[in-house]
Simulated scan of single mutants.
Amino acid sequence: MTTSKPLTGIELIDCAKANAKQGIANATQLSGYGNDVDKFMEELQAACHKIGVNIDSLSDLITEQQQLKQIPGLEIAPDSESSL
């Protein structure tokens, strides 16, 4: 859902983090900054700095748990219980 007024502070951080996996253009749009990626990143970095977190890019907000969810696994199992 796109907001009419650009988000700031913790709301901006929350929205950016929730949409970081979909890319910076999507996160910028959903945070109310339209296509102004530079302004979005400037405000996001300022908001993060205010709470004591330094980020260089949007991908810094993606947690290890979020990254693990997107890595497909390989299941290895016997063909049947009798071939254990």
Score class of each variant (00 low, 15 high):
Lys5Asp: 11
Thr63Ser: 15
Leu84Glu: 14
Ile62Tyr: 01
Ala25Cys: 12
Ile71Gln: 14
Gly52Cys: 13
Glu81Val: 14
Ile24Asp: 02
Gln22Tyr: 12
Ala27Met: 11
Gly9Glu: 04
Asn54Tyr: 13
Ile10Trp: 06
Pro72Lys: 03
Cys48Leu: 10
Ala46Phe: 06
Phe40Val: 03
Leu12Val: 02
Asp38His: 10
Lys21Tyr: 02
Lys39Trp: 08
Ser83Lys: 14
Thr63His: 10
Leu12Ala: 01
Asp14Ala: 14
Val53Thr: 09
Ala16Asp: 03
Val53Lys: 11
Ile71Arg: 14
Met1Ile: 08
Leu12His: 02
Leu61Glu: 04
Lys50Gln: 07
Pro72Val: 05
Leu30Asn: 02
Ala47Lys: 03
Lys21Ile: 07
Glu64Pro: 00
Gln29Met: 15
Ile51Cys: 05
Thr63Lys: 02
His49Tyr: 08
Lys5His: 12
Asp36Phe: 05
Lys39Tyr: 13
Phe40Met: 03
Leu7Asp: 01
Gln29Asp: 12
Glu43Pro: 00
Asn54Phe: 03
Thr8Asp: 10
Glu81Asn: 12
Pro78His: 00
Gly32Val: 08
Ser4Tyr: 07
Lys21Thr: 04
Ser4Gly: 08
Ile55Pro: 02
Lys21Glu: 09
Ala20Ile: 04
Ala25Asn: 14
Asn19Met: 10
Glu75Ile: 15
Thr28Pro: 02
Asn54Pro: 00
Ile76Pro: 03
Thr28Ser: 09
Met41Phe: 14
Asp38Gly: 11
Lys39Val: 15
Asn26Trp: 10
Ile51Asp: 01
Gln67His: 07
Thr28Arg: 09
Leu44Arg: 02
Asp79Tyr: 15
Leu84Lys: 12
Ala27Asn: 10
Val37Ser: 10
Lys21Val: 04
Phe40Ile: 02
Asn26Gly: 02
Ser57His: 09
Asn26Tyr: 13
Phe40Asn: 00
Ser57Gln: 10
Leu12Ile: 05
Gln66Trp: 00
Glu43Ala: 07
Gln67Thr: 09
Cys48Tyr: 04
Val53Trp: 09
Gly52Leu: 13
Gln66Asp: 01
Met1Pro: 07
Thr63Phe: 05
Ser82Gln: 15
Lys21Leu: 13
Ile51Tyr: 04
